[in-house]
Amino acid sequence: MAHPVRGRGPAPAPGHVAAVLIGTLVVLGGCSAEQRDEWSRLALPEPATKEAPLIGDLWVGAWIAAFGVGFLVWGLIIWAAVAYRRRGDELPKQTRFNIPIEFLYTLAPFFVIVPLFFHTAERQDQITDIRTEPDLTVDVVGQQWSWTFNYVDEDVHEIGTVNDRPTLYLPVGEMVRFNLGSPDVIHSFWIPAFYMKQDVFPGQPNAYQVTPDREGSYVGRCAEFCGVFHQSMRFDVEVVSQEEFDEQMDALREAGQTGLIDPPIRGAYDDEPLNPDDPGGDR
């Protein structure tokens, strides 16, 4: 008995395909230059430090490698599906193994992993190098649930609270060293436009250096879940001229915010909360 032939459905009309392509081009053409620049950076924000390209280039390179591997794998899958599709009732020749192919997919990943490892280690050494004497040192304290900024060279400080974001002022073109510490739990000091993020450990100081090279207003945040009010651990960053930076330091002095703040250390054995106004805080 003959079986009915099953059709594959009507093929898409050439006009429909052309309409989709034209619509895609219109959408892409309507994007702003800023959006196109962001796509070229693969979703990274516009860099704001001299060191940012060290991370940005590594990010873009890793994505290029990932896309290359993806296209190769997808191509092989499509090729195998087409070349070895079922024809009639006879199955393609079945094999238990293929030494050349198995050798290829065992060796090929090393051609991706080795270059990525080399460039990652190289950039990491450059990014974490703090041997150069900085122009400005800021001791950053991450506490539940805000930030304290000690301008060591100016002997002034800025303290944030859950309800009031602190503002970090940095002079443009000056190398800044961030000394990171925490009195309570692990935080993570992150300014997305600087492309640099580093964890803030209690009892284990961390540090890194950057040189802001573009004036502007930026947002910083904690990138490590650190408790109930983790979402409140945001801060503003203002990269300004040297003259405006000096004015801000003078304003802190006039406000009586002189000296460096060393918040009390609180460990798991401590019965007192860090903030007297927060009796329900984590112990």
Rank of each mutant, 00 (worst) to 15 (best):
I130D: 08
E154C: 09
E34W: 05
V140C: 01
V141I: 15
A65R: 13
T120V: 11
V239P: 09
P202G: 05
I191A: 04
E158I: 11
I191S: 02
Y84V: 09
S188H: 06
R283W: 04
A80I: 09
K93R: 12
D199K: 13
V228F: 04
I78L: 12
G256V: 05
P12H: 07
N179V: 03
E238D: 08
M233C: 15
G160T: 07
R234C: 04
V27S: 04
Q242Y: 05
R87P: 03
P109R: 01
F118K: 11
M175W: 04
N150V: 09
V156R: 04
L42G: 04
D236T: 09
L168T: 03
E34S: 14
T258C: 09
G7D: 14
P4L: 12
G216T: 04
A83R: 15
R41V: 12
A19G: 11
F111I: 11
V73Y: 09
Y105E: 02
G280W: 02
A255M: 10
Y105I: 15
T128F: 10
W145N: 14
P47M: 01
G203N: 02
Q126C: 01
I186S: 03
G181S: 11
R165Q: 12
Y151P: 04
S232R: 07
T148D: 04
V138G: 02
R165K: 15
D89R: 13
T24H: 05
F149D: 01
D57E: 11
L274N: 08
F245V: 12
R177A: 05
A18C: 05
F97N: 02
I113G: 00
E154N: 14
A207K: 10
L54W: 08
V152C: 07
L260N: 02
Y84T: 14
L168I: 05
I55E: 06
P10N: 07
H187S: 08
V176C: 02
I261M: 14
A48Q: 12
A66R: 07
Y105N: 06
G75I: 10
Y195F: 14
Y84K: 12
L21M: 10
V237L: 05
V200E: 06
N150L: 07
G9W: 09
L136W: 13
F245K: 10
L168H: 01
P279N: 03
Y151H: 07
V240N: 08
I159T: 14
E243L: 08
F118T: 13
P276W: 06
N98F: 11
A255G: 13
E243M: 08
Q144K: 12
A18H: 10
E51Q: 15
M233L: 07
I261V: 15
Q124M: 06
Q94K: 10
F189R: 00
L252I: 13
F103N: 03
D125T: 12
P273S: 04
G160Q: 08
Y151N: 02
P45E: 15
L44D: 09
H230K: 03
G61D: 10
T106E: 04
I265N: 12
C222G: 01
G88M: 01
D184E: 07
N179H: 04
